[in-house]
């Protein structure tokens, strides 16, 4: 009897170990993106206007927040979204730094070396190309530029541009905008005056 139980247990062990063959470990364990372990306590956003202001993420989150629908498309037609974006309006940040006037430009950049320039009209939400979900061009509804720190109620992931990225938002769902302006990992906003 004991011998039978022992043999049965050994076979059961073999079964359990061998059953691992059903779900072998993936061949590739490399992540799609190298995601550094981030601690955003040392991260800051610098806004250089008439005044120079530096925000921590906590300070940015303490400012009045805006929420809107955002949906981007890459230069080769890959769609990202739709998202419910939450963050601070670019116009609000600029206002706190002295505001901008017709003819001024806003340069938004990130530590990965990416830079995008918005003119005054764009800062007001004008002059963007918009598409429907099928990427057919549609007349643009009212748009706003957001410095977003949340997508769909969660903090941005690194791949999404954490901790802060540009999002072009609308009150309407499924309005797609060109992704080139959606700067990821934003840490600098500069106002370039017309006379510069």
């Amino acid at each position: 009897m004991i011998r039978t139980i022992q043999t049965g247990l050994i076979l059961l062990m073999l079964f359990i170990v061998g059953a691992g063959c059903i779900n072998p470990a993936p061949v590739s364990s490399s992540p799609a993106v190298t995601v550094p372990v981030e601690d955003y306590r040392s991260w800051t956003l610098t806004v250089n206007g008439t005044a120079r202001q530096v925000y921590s993420l906590a300070e940015l989150r303490a400012l009045p927040a805006t929420t809107g629908h955002g949906f981007a498309v890459s230069t080769v037609g890959i769609k990202y979204g739709p998202y419910i974006c939450r963050g601070v309006l670019l116009t609000d940040l600029l206002e706190r730094a002295g505001g901008i006037s017709q003819g001024d430009q806003v340069w938004i950049s990130a530590p990965d070396g990416y830079l995008w320039v918005f003119d005054y009209d764009q800062v007001q939400g004008n002059g963007f190309i918009t598409f429907n979900e099928s990427l057919k061009e549609i007349p643009p509804p009212p748009l706003r530029i957001l410095l977003a720190y949340e997508f769909d109620g969660s903090p941005l992931t690194y791949n999404d541009g954490a901790p802060l990225r540009v999002a072009i938002i609308s009150d309407e769902k499924n309005v797609v905008t060109e992704g080139s302006a959606w700067v990821k990992w934003v840490d600098s906003i500069e106002v370039h005056r017309k006379t510069q």
Binding site: S74, T75, V76, G77, I129, L135, E137, E178, G179, S180
Partner: peptide, 10 residues
């Protein structure tokens, strides 16, 4: 437009 895909669509 941002890229060929949009240009050809247009």
């Amino acid at each position: 437009r941002d890229g060929s895909v949009f240009l050809m669509s247009l």
